[in-house]
């Protein structure tokens, strides 16, 4: 009888340990936002690299604000020799996407025209940095 009880208690112990591990794992996944990926994508604006030496086809989503550039510390790394370390900022305000050149050396072009002040972007607009062309989706 005590044997049975001990076995039972042991299994309960193991069960509780697993319950605990599961709780922690779940909390980590919510913290990392693994559950909220789809929702966030809908609220952000997608940008695709349509022309690039090495990054053609890459896409990223602007939800809040992003800095693009050739620096490792930029939010999105641009592999383009004509890009500055921190070349431009893409930000969303009230559902609109805004491009802001950060005083880059070689400039930012929207639909072929160089921009120096913050400019609203629409779907299908082409943003060019050096030899890289991005399209707003």
């Amino acid at each position: 009888m005590p044997d049975l009880l001990l076995t039972l208690l042991r299994l309960i112990f193991l069960g509780l340990v697993y319950l605990f591990v599961w709780q922690v794992a779940r909390s980590i996944s919510t913290h990392l936002g693994l559950g909220g990926v789809r929702r966030r994508r809908r609220s952000g604006t997608r940008v695709a690299l349509v022309k690039s030496d090495s990054q053609s086809g890459a896409t990223f989503t602007v939800t809040d604000s992003m800095v693009l550039g050739r620096s490792d510390e930029a939010d999105f790394f641009l592999d383009d020799p004509y890009a500055s370390d921190f070349h431009l900022r893409l930000s969303t305000r009230e559902g609109r996407l805004i491009v802001n050149d950060l005083g880059s050396t070689n400039g930012t072009y929207v639909n072929g025209r160089r921009v120096t002040t913050p400019v609203d972007l629409n779907r299908g607009d082409a943003v060019q940095v050096g030899k890289t062309v991005m399209e707003v989706r």
Binding site: L6, F13, L16, V17
Partner: peptide
């Protein structure tokens, strides 16, 4: 959990 484990050892 640690206390539960120790109680099992005791038991």
């Amino acid at each position: 959990l640690a206390a539960f484990g120790v109680s099992l050892v005791n038991f």
